[in-house]
Design a protein around this nucleic acid. Sequence first.
DNA 1: CGCTATACATCATATCACGAGGTATATATA
DNA 2: TATATATACCTCGTGATATGATGTATAGCG
Lengths: 105, 105
Amino acid sequence: MDAQLKRGVLDVCVLAALKNEDSYGYKIIKDVRPVLSLSESTLYTILKRLEDAKMISVWTKEFEGRLRKYYHITSKGIRRLEEFKEEWKELNSIYLYIVRGSRYE
Amino acid sequence: MDAQLKRGVLDVCVLAALKNEDSYGYKIIKDVRPVLSLSESTLYTILKRLEDAKMISVWTKEFEGRLRKYYHITSKGIRRLEEFKEEWKELNSIYLYIVRGSRYE
DNA sequence: CGCTATACATCATATCACGAGGTATATATA
DNA sequence: TATATATACCTCGTGATATGATGTATAGCG
């Protein structure tokens, strides 16, 4: 898939992966990958960005001797998902413009 | 509209604007703007990029004393538009993932 | 002991949208 | 006449960002 096209949906995909339950980096990657490929470095960059934007919050838990960082979607994150649905409508009209050509076909 | 989401469609929108007839910078902006806002600097950057990628070709014509650069979509550009239609299908399944949440809702 | 999976993180690089700024001409307006 | 606006092109610096490469550390398996 085109790299540029991915940019707009990557963040939202990660938020979507947290919609139903808290999760951690390694698991998020596995969940999202069947839908959209992403590398580890990308995922952790996104998680950092979403945390800075307060769309997710973090809590740490020890699991089998290792620390695991669990991510939780905040109300702001939920709002972002709602926003995306609106943007999708816009995207659809752009798509129509693209397939139809600039004017009458 | 989200800046990242735009990235994937901007190039394709410009190609779409050239689908039916050759056009020039100033006119392309006016044609595309009702669908998707873009600045002049962005447009000329895109035109340069598409030209480098041989998706469009350029010819110059004098018009009312001034030079105008007309852009023509190449077969490679047409192919890019077709490709985009395929990518759109992928995008749709990503959208479904996002609105449904990671698993059963 | 070596390998793989799990789990996290950082850095350098390349790509890119955009605002700010620049050049120049034609036409409308004050 | 002066000035503003529309047309038409272009460049540069900046900030955002996806990704590969790389590093650290533990658990479990053969």
